[in-house]
Computed example of a mutant assay.
Amino acid sequence: MTNKVLEPTIISTDPGIDDAVAIAIALGDPVMDVQLICPIAGNVSVEKTMLNTRLLLTFLGQSTRIVQGSRKPLLRPLKDASGVHGKTGMDGYPFPKAKVPVDTMTPAAVAMHETVVANQQPVTLIGIGPLTDIALFIHQYPGDLKKIKQLVLMGGALGRGNLGVLSEFNFGTDPEAAKIVFNSGLPIRVAPMEVGRQAKILPDTSEKIKHIGKVGDMFYALFSKYRGGSFKTGLNMYDALAMAMILDPSCFTEVETHVAIETRGELTAGASLIDLKGYLGKSANASVAVDVDSKRFESWFVDAISRTANL
């Protein structure tokens, strides 16, 4: 039996309750070597996402490098999602005082570059928030792109949106950044919003998680304040999808297709055109999850949370 090779990983994130779950899963997995976390403004302000990342890592006893991300989109004002995640972004649990430091002097794109060039093997880049910093990294360091193994994103919508009529929050917050990302030529995999709604954590599973040590108790408390579903109807898992696409891709049905981002529409800016029927006549630039085995995902999710209890 051969040992799995650690996979150097960078996470761009805007915690956010479901982001916190995704980060913890990545830190608890024996395959993922999370070397850099860049909190960005999105669900709440960058000051809050930085603090939330520090609180989470302190709670988990981890010391991963944290570098401040962008405080606003490239060209547009920030529209946060505190209505879903609460005023702080991680309401509901009395975290211990944050002790993990954060680098506020190095731009996130520079920190990404430093991490990529420091590794001998290709790096996995994960985006579970607005794509501003990833776009800046792509723009500023095109020579690094050959060292990116894959870019895994949670974002976009196969149909209707949750930020605008046709725009999903992560891509729609910074459409210009999303467009840069999908035009980059990187190997991209995407878990869109609808797949997160399929990947529900049902009530009996939430009860199981509640009793997985202090980590399970923390997650249960956070989800009591989460407005992405409910304990009664099932919790929608969004950002954890990105981790599952890396760690258990057999959960998903993926389709190679072209993804275009609308940036000029008066009413449709931020829409992700996931061209499953080839209307645009353009070659594929992403592998998009169009379905998830919800039972398999739920089982994987419980196992992943259990691993965080060993941190």
Rank of each mutant, 00 (worst) to 15 (best):
M1N: 06
T2R: 10
N3F: 11
V5K: 13
L6H: 03
E7R: 15
T9L: 03
T13H: 02
D14E: 12
G16K: 00
D18S: 07
D19F: 06
A24D: 04
I25T: 10
A26T: 04
V31F: 08
D33F: 02
L36P: 09
S45C: 08
E47C: 07
T53F: 02
F59G: 04
Q68I: 03
S70W: 00
S70H: 01
S70A: 14
R71G: 12
P77Y: 01
L78I: 05
A81T: 06
G83P: 02
G86S: 07
Y93E: 01
P96D: 00
K97E: 15
K99A: 15
P101E: 10
V117Y: 09
A118I: 14
P122K: 14
I128K: 03
I128Q: 08
G129K: 03
G143S: 09
K149T: 00
Q150V: 02
L151V: 11
V152W: 06
L153P: 06
M154D: 07
G159A: 13
R160D: 10
G161W: 02
G164N: 08
S167D: 05
E168G: 11
N170G: 07
P175S: 06
A178Q: 05
A178T: 11
S184F: 01
G185A: 04
P187T: 10
A191G: 10
T205M: 11
S206G: 11
S206Q: 13
S206M: 15
E207R: 15
K208R: 15
G213L: 08
F219T: 02
Y220P: 03
F223A: 02
K225D: 12
R227A: 12
Y238P: 01
Y238V: 05
A240N: 11
A242Y: 01
M243Y: 03
A244I: 04
A244L: 05
L247W: 00
S250G: 03
H258M: 00
T263F: 01
T263G: 04
T268A: 09
G270L: 04
A271H: 05
K277E: 14
Y279H: 15
L280G: 12
L280Q: 15
A286R: 02
V290Q: 08
D293E: 10
S299L: 14
R307E: 04
L311P: 00
